[in-house]
């Protein structure tokens, strides 16, 4: 069975919140492994938005992201008995999701259709950024935000799949370098290098919106 101390022994789960979270996950996984299939629903509810967010920002397509998120959960469910606790559950789940998405993107490199989700303008961070970007209000502001979203999507799609994944995991989902290295099965140096290169490209693409 899974030994939670092994999970915490790694540098993956650093903060106490993450540690508590991983502890709860291990408990749920243990229940699923014991045959309580319904317990997996709690894991779905807990991680579906984050997993969807990663895949959505990698694919820039809502339908694809929904399908891939569902597939990732199904794969995790089918393989839950193989989860040994070497990493935290969410790292393991992320790895499944990222690998499925990378495989999907490699198969369908040319994609002409991108869908945009609505930006939650009430969120403090996004509200502050939008206010800093424009003085417009109402419909003009919405239009401006939508234009910025499209530019961001275009810039992200110009990155290679691996660079896009690193940027998504680090900047959007907030994972650390070590966690990204675990998820992408590469070294921390590679993660940092990819991140630096990707930011340079994005900076060049989004120059009109950047203010020093």
């Amino acid at each position: 069975m899974i030994d939670a101390t092994k999970v915490f022994g790694k540098a993956l789960v650093a903060s106490p919140e993450r540690r508590q979270e991983a502890d709860a996950d291990v408990e749920i996984v243990r229940q699923v492994q014991a045959g309580d299939v319904a317990a997996f629903d709690r894991l779905i509810l807990k991680y579906r938005e984050r997993v969807f967010g990663i895949i959505y920002n990698m694919t820039s397509n809502r339908e694809d992201a929904a399908d891939l998120t569902q597939d990732a959960f199904i794969k995790a469910f089918q393989s839950i008995h193989r989860f040994g606790g070497q990493s935290s559950f969410f790292t393991w789940l992320y790895r499944i999701a990222v690998n499925s998405t990378l495989s999907h993107l490699r198969k369908a490199r040319i994609r002409s259709f991108f869908s945009l989700e609505r930006v939650d303008a009430d969120e403090p961070v996004s509200k502050e950024i939008i206010e800093a970007l424009t003085d417009r209000t109402g419909a003009e502001r919405d239009s401006y935000v939508r234009e910025l979203q499209e530019k961001l999507n275009d810039a992200m799609q110009k990155l290679s799949i691996k660079h896009r994944t690193v940027v998504t995991l680090f900047e959007i989902d907030g994972l650390g370098h070590q966690e990204i290295a675990e998820v992408m099965d590469c070294s921390i140096g590679t993660v940092r290098s990819r991140l630096h290169y990707a930011k340079q490209l994005l900076q060049a693409e989004l120059q009109p919106y950047i203010r020093r």
């Binding site: 967010g53 930006v119 939650d120 303008a121 950024i129 961001l152 959007i172 994005l202 900076q203």
Partner: peptide, 12 residues
């Protein structure tokens, strides 16, 4: 750039 990317977090 980080601020702009953070904006994508709010896409839900």
């Amino acid at each position: 750039v980080e601020d702009l990317l953070r904006l994508k977090r709010a896409e839900r």
